[in-house]
């Protein structure tokens, strides 16, 4: 119940968060796609991207975030990211190169490399973002269980477990 009050009271934080979220998103995209030129890449971008949703969850309650990014979507996204990465390698296999040899992706080896790196970084980013958000979900959705634990463990619980 305390939680609700806190959430209702902190309108200021909520408003500021609403402003911050697009900026962080923008930064995440910057890190993702500019990783070739500066520091950063798929992994970092994924984490930053996830932090948007985590922030949203912390401020507005995780239940609302779940409406934006549903667990099912996360499950599929994290799989797709990994598949995108591994699939890029398979495509280069089909194009006659070795696995993960991006040079064969396009006629020009260097732009092939660029596209390959872009593709795998995207895969990493998607997977990492989805994984991080789902980690957040996992570690916050168990909260309601806490009240139901009896200390120390009762005899009946011992029996039921064996």
């Amino acid at each position: 119940m305390l939680k609700r009050n806190v959430q209702q009271r902190h309108r200021v934080v909520q408003v500021i968060t609403k402003f911050l979220i697009p900026m962080i998103l923008l930064f995440a995209f910057y890190v993702q796609f500019h990783g070739d030129f500066g520091a950063g890449g798929g992994f970092q971008a994924g984490v930053i991207f996830a932090s948007v949703f985590i922030l949203h969850g912390l401020i507005f309650g995780e239940a609302r975030t779940r409406l934006v990014l549903t667990p099912n979507a996360l499950r599929i996204l994290m799989s797709l990211g990994l598949l995108l990465y591994a699939g890029t390698g398979v495509v280069s296999l089909f194009l006659g190169g070795n696995y993960l040899d991006y040079s064969v992706l396009l006629s020009d080896p260097i732009s092939g490399q660029h596209w390959g790196i872009f593709s795998v970084e995207l895969g990493v980013g998607i997977t990492v973002a989805a994984v991080m958000v789902s980690l957040f979900y996992c570690f916050s959705s168990k909260r309601n269980f806490v009240g139901h634990i009896s200390h120390p463990i009762s005899e009946s619980e011992l029996d039921s477990d064996g």
Partner: peptide, 11 residues
């Protein structure tokens, strides 16, 4: 490695 995410998608 690719079969694992496919499993997760299929559920």
């Amino acid at each position: 490695l690719m079969a694992a995410p496919i499993c997760v998608i299929l559920r």
